[in-house]
Design a protein around this nucleic acid. Sequence first.
DNA 1: TGAATTCATATCGCGCACGATTAAATCGTT
DNA 2: AACGATTTAATCGTGCGCGATATGAATTCA
Lengths: 148, 148
Amino acid sequence: MSQKPASSDQPVEILRLDNQLCFALYGAANRMTRLYRPLLDALGLTYPQYLAMLVLWEASPRTVGALGEALDLDSSTLTPLLKRLEAGGLVTRDRDPEDERRVIVALTDKGRALRDQAVTIPEKVFCALDMPLEAMGVLRDRLKTVAR
Amino acid sequence: MSQKPASSDQPVEILRLDNQLCFALYGAANRMTRLYRPLLDALGLTYPQYLAMLVLWEASPRTVGALGEALDLDSSTLTPLLKRLEAGGLVTRDRDPEDERRVIVALTDKGRALRDQAVTIPEKVFCALDMPLEAMGVLRDRLKTVAR
DNA sequence: TGAATTCATATCGCGCACGATTAAATCGTT
DNA sequence: AACGATTTAATCGTGCGCGATATGAATTCA
């Protein structure tokens, strides 16, 4: 009763999990999250929260919309995430008085200070990945074209 | 009040979002899910459910553990997912009489039949990605080493 | 000006991922 | 046979992602 062939067998290869770019991407992304988790636990951040903080460390007062554009996420994902960062005292969230539709997210001193602990993370990840820097750059840029 | 520099400015580059492999991976994986969604809606599958079906289409009776190994997921993710596939009539879930700890997941006729609709998906994705086949293969294999 | 439209964010529901824990079956050692 | 250790799934709680929808503010334009 095992290995019963599926209804048509010709196009097997095209559906093999090992051949799927999508699965390689899915698995690598999951692995990456797991790799960061213990490092980020020390900062009290989740992986998506860390990415949001990276954006804010680059330029602090930013609207939810600008953050969403940088991260390619929409408000249904960001709003709760930002509320958790706010609850942790890392950011403030305030309506823009110039345009009450906008919400301005800004780092607190605590949020800015956290960056000093975060700077050690990329090196640790780099070591754990054990891949030449050059190859990492190429891979990163290839992935950017997928996420265009 | 904008662009206030963070506490130390030396290691800016290493924390820039654009330089992060992890973010490229995160963004590409999210994009891929969004690319598949409309295609999979037609089959009534989510993206992770589709990956699980790919595994089962390769070899149908499989334990939860074997499925988890193939997908690099654990039972806390798989059990609810498989219950939804079962609810949809695509698989059965039964305790292995040989070893009552194991649960054997097997395709139903409906589950096997769904493969005929799935075979058109990879081609559509390939067209949407608009990337040379060769480059896709290289990228896929690079990602596999990340997910090692 | 007022009504319709557009824009920015928030809310809700569902389905993952995963760490932590639990429960039950099997195995190993004595 | 007994009993502690290991194996296998399931359960639970938290935090995403995102489609669909709602809300309210700003803008357009009749």
